[in-house]
Amino acid sequence: MPIFSEMTHKYLRAKKKFPNVWCSGCGIGTVMGAIIRAIDHLHLSRDEVVMISGIGCSSRMPVYVDFNTLHTTHGRPLAFATGVKLAKPNLKVIIVTGDGDALAIGGNHFIHACRRNIDLTTILINNSTYGMTGGQVAPTTPFMKIGTTAPYGNRERGFDISKLAMAAGAPFVARGTVYHVVQLQKLVEQAILKKGFSLVEVISQCHTLYGRLNKEGGPVEMMKWQRDHAIPISAAGKVPAEKLKDKFFTGVLWDIDFPEYCEEYDKVIALAQSLAEGEGVRVKGKERE
């Protein structure tokens, strides 16, 4: 269990819900700390923050924090968040999801949330595995890594989450790691402030399962790996290509502006109200399924 500062403590449901379910040394607690510090630094009121998650170790986070919290079904937090945000656009909606949650069972919701561009902040904790169910392969498990359901090596490729999000239309995409925790807090802050759908992928360690199965050591070794493989995006172009092998970029990878859905819907409301009554467009004479 991670140690929390006094500031962090006031955002936790400390009396009610601790100790937590996470293994000591797991990266998820560190991500929770970074999110809390970001919220504190932005002076958001706890009443206006909504944290929504799916199912998984990562998705247990909302239970522990003193916000409006919604722990949903496996893979679907973005769909729930869509309803919450549309109903009350003034709320700050933060989604915490795992790589399996967001990209396997929730892959469809993920790409559509990127495309739709509702002002949601998604923190995707990528530990390359299914932690909660015991180390099975995830859609992020790299080629030839071991999972309990790929005992002879994973023959599929993992998703490149950031590229997927960009291609699907997300206007803000960032990547951080548990090791680079100060940077992570800043990325979360930027993501919250971004008007539109924002994604922060956090490279995290599941030493208990993924680390052990793949002989990558304990939390310390796995965080050293994060340190040694992360290259700030600002250094892109400056680093020779051969040094980029097996590495990944961190920082804000993509930041564009695109009309935000809730604001667009306000225009829909204004237009509908100004137009005369009329029935919705109907397609006639066509076989419909």
């Binding site: 679907r76 729930f80 309803g83 919450v84």
Partner: peptide, 26 residues
């Protein structure tokens, strides 16, 4: 929208009911 309400077409029915629940919670 004429009633200041909102309509959204989701990516599937799983998402549809999820959004409905989210909105009701709000």
């Amino acid at each position: 929208p004429k009633l200041s309400g909102k309509f959204i077409q989701m990516e599937d029915e799983i998402a549809s009911l999820a959004a409905v629940i989210g909105s009701s919670v709000a």
